[in-house]
């Protein structure tokens, strides 16, 4: 088939069929509440880091679920672990342990 160049550009697409879900699986295994998110955004609303930088815990959660993990290490390191997100989360997600396990997953990747 001839490629006319009209399909979604590689960088634009969330390539959910080919993305790597190892981090998503690792975090869900170690902290099952990672899956409970309904994307309400209260975590980001209350987040101290989110007011000073582009850090967005809701989005990080969503993107990991989509297998999108570019720049994740840099993003996740902005978290101060203060725990406000955990207090406001209506789903009762153990947000701090989600962050901790994302770090652990990344750490394991780096070690390999």
């Amino acid at each position: 088939m001839k490629d006319w160049g009209y399909s979604i550009l590689k960088g634009r697409q969330i390539d959910i069929e080919n993305n790597d879900f190892s981090i998503s699986r690792f975090v869900a295994q170690h902290e099952p509440s990672f899956k409970w998110c309904i994307g309400c955004g209260s975590c980001t609303a209350t987040c101290s880091a989110a007011r000073l930088t582009g850090f967005n815990p809701r989005k990080i959660n969503l993107l990991i679920h989509r297998g999108e993990t570019t720049n994740l290490a840099e993003e996740i390191s902005k978290c101060m672990l203060c725990g406000k997100c955990q207090l406001v989360c209506p789903r009762g997600i153990n947000t701090r342990n989600v962050i901790q396990n994302i770090k652990r997953a990344l750490n394991n990747c780096h070690a390999l």
Binding site: A49, L52, T53, A73, E74, E75, I76, S77, K78, M80, K103, R104, L106, N107, H110
Partner: peptide
């Protein structure tokens, strides 16, 4: 502890 980059450059 993780051997990841520290990201608090944004602090005002």
């Amino acid at each position: 502890a993780f051997k990841l980059p520290q990201g608090f450059h944004y602090l005002p």
